[in-house]
């Protein structure tokens, strides 16, 4: 994520603010990657590249490395957390997680990823946030500020 782009918007009023519950605390700024499909860990993600490999997934072939991953929730095998844990080791982890449906897979995955994570939002992030938006996430305080890059 380009620091320059973030610096440009930093003085401006955000286009939207979404409040949520803290899952993993922390603050980060970065670019959004949004999917309306749930994500499988084991069998759905290649940890070496941070790429979604599930066939028929709308992000098939796309890497979430260094992005704020905005998604409905986790599905599939109980290997979810360990696959995302491996992305942390491989340097391909997402920068932060924003998801709607709380499950043990998503919670544990977020914990071992050690990235700022929010859930239980006052507005559906899948309706508001678009891929490419610049986000400032304060998971500790429980909010996301977003700036549109394409208007």
């Amino acid at each position: 994520m380009s620091g320059a782009a973030m610096a440009r918007v930093r003085g401006q009023t955000p286009d939207y603010i979404i409040h949520g519950r803290c899952v993993v605390p922390g603050c980060v700024e970065g670019e959004a990657l949004v999917t309306h499909d749930t994500i499988s860990g084991w069998g759905g993600v290649s940890p070496m590249t941070g790429t979604i490999i599930e066939s028929r997934h709308e992000l098939n072939g796309v890497s979430f490395a260094g992005k704020v991953l905005v998604f409905p929730g986790a599905k599939g095998s109980s290997g979810w957390s360990s696959i995302f844990h491996m992305t942390r080791l491989a340097g391909t982890a997402p920068l932060a997680l924003l998801f709607n449906v709380m499950t043990t897979k998503a919670a544990l995955g977020a914990v071992v990823l050690r990235v700022p994570t929010l859930t239980d939002f006052d507005r559906d992030p899948l309706e508001v946030i678009r891929s490419g938006d610049l986000l400032r996430i304060d998971a500790t305080q429980g909010y996301v500020e977003g700036w549109r890059t394409i208007r």
């Binding site: 109980s78 290997g79 957390s81 360990s82 043990t104 897979k105 544990l108 995955g109 914990v111 071992v112």
Partner: peptide, 8 residues
């Protein structure tokens, strides 16, 4: 049981 993970 929940669907637990390796670490938990």
């Amino acid at each position: 049981t929940n669907c637990e993970g390796r670490e938990s």
